[in-house]
Nucleic acid binder design. Structure first.
Lengths: 177, 177
DNA sequence: GCATTTTCACCTAGGTGTCAAGTT
DNA sequence: AACTTGACACCTAGGTGAAAATGC
């Protein structure tokens, strides 16, 4: 209603605006380059190992709490902790499909909620949206960690991996509490 | 588009119709009468025990898979297995609030999906809907089962209660498998 | 005395990295 | 030789009724 071009959002919606104040937040993950990588253990670094495998078209993952109001977007954390990755190109569960040993850039898309679509967004170019990219979030997809520091980071930061933390090595006192 | 009165749905949408073919399915649970009950253990039956406590206005529980298409409604089971009940009138989790020791009738409402509301249905009378009632689903709300047959039924039919099934009484062979 | 809440052992369901086995 | 998959132990998270504790 401010006369923005379609396919581009401007800033400046004020706190009072209620009309059309519904937003979808989506994530996709796009290739950084056309390369395949391998890991050089002895020098602890990634090396180019050839040309990329043919990429699947990036899948859009809609944040499950959508639609958000602009107030929610201002006051709440929008976490994508439930997004799942797979290397199975035939996946039917809406997971994001990646090729292992390739580099990727996650992207966040803020999309004006269209009444009547119910979040069924298949093509970003048909929407009014703005994309946010955080270059520090680039990563290399793997099926097994190549680096023990990554393994330690995951074990220390993911509650489901608590069983592998150092402190869980028992000190032989696990009988008759 | 067939000229039905608002607030009432007719049958006869054919398989081909696509326009507006989105439906919400909701459940609410309404008091059967204005009575409070108690259970007579010695005769295994419910008795009237006085006048009902003041009822909270019935809450509408929207099926989480909404909206459905009419094809989905024809071909799939619509299960309300995730609905939760509580006796806490202050509940903020969208659970259905009931008074213990009162009789209730669950109801199912089929509601035409309104674009722009995103399933945010607060008042049924503002919608185009049809209600389905199954008298065999009337029940008495409790905080503890009053009848051992109910306890057995629940234990035998709910996977989470498997630990209480007869067959799980161990036969003294639970050492060193 | 009866109804409700709290705590608990026992489950289901599913998210972790490990390790062995399989694949290319 | 390097990468991928599947079975596994170990967790988190939470749904059961039993039994004890609490409330009215």
């Amino acid at each position: 209603h401010h006369g923005h071009h379609a396919h581009q959002l401007g800033g400046g919606d004020t706190a009072g605006s209620a009309e059309g104040d519904r937003w979808a937040v989506l994530m996709d993950i796009v290739p950084v380059d056309q390369k395949r990588y391998r890991y050089a253990y002895h020098r602890s670094s990634w090396l180019v190992a050839g040309k990329a495998d043919p990429p699947a078209p990036p899948r859009l993952y809609l944040h499950p709490d959508a639609p958000f109001t602009s107030e929610q977007l201002r006051k709440q954390v929008v976490s994508f902790e439930k997004v799942k990755l797979t290397n199975n190109e035939m996946d039917k569960n809406g997971q994001i499909v990646l090729n292992s040993m390739h580099r990727y850039q996650p992207r966040i898309h803020l999309v004006r909620w269209r009444e009547g679509c119910g979040g069924n967004i298949t093509d970003l170019e048909a929407e009014e949206y703005k994309t946010f990219v955080f270059p520090e979030s680039v990563f290399t997809a793997v099926t097994a960690y190549q680096n023990q520091l990554i393994t330690k980071l995951k074990i220390d930061s993911n509650p489901f991996a608590k069983g592998f933390r150092d402190s869980s090595r028992l000190t032989d006192f696990d009988r008759d509490p």
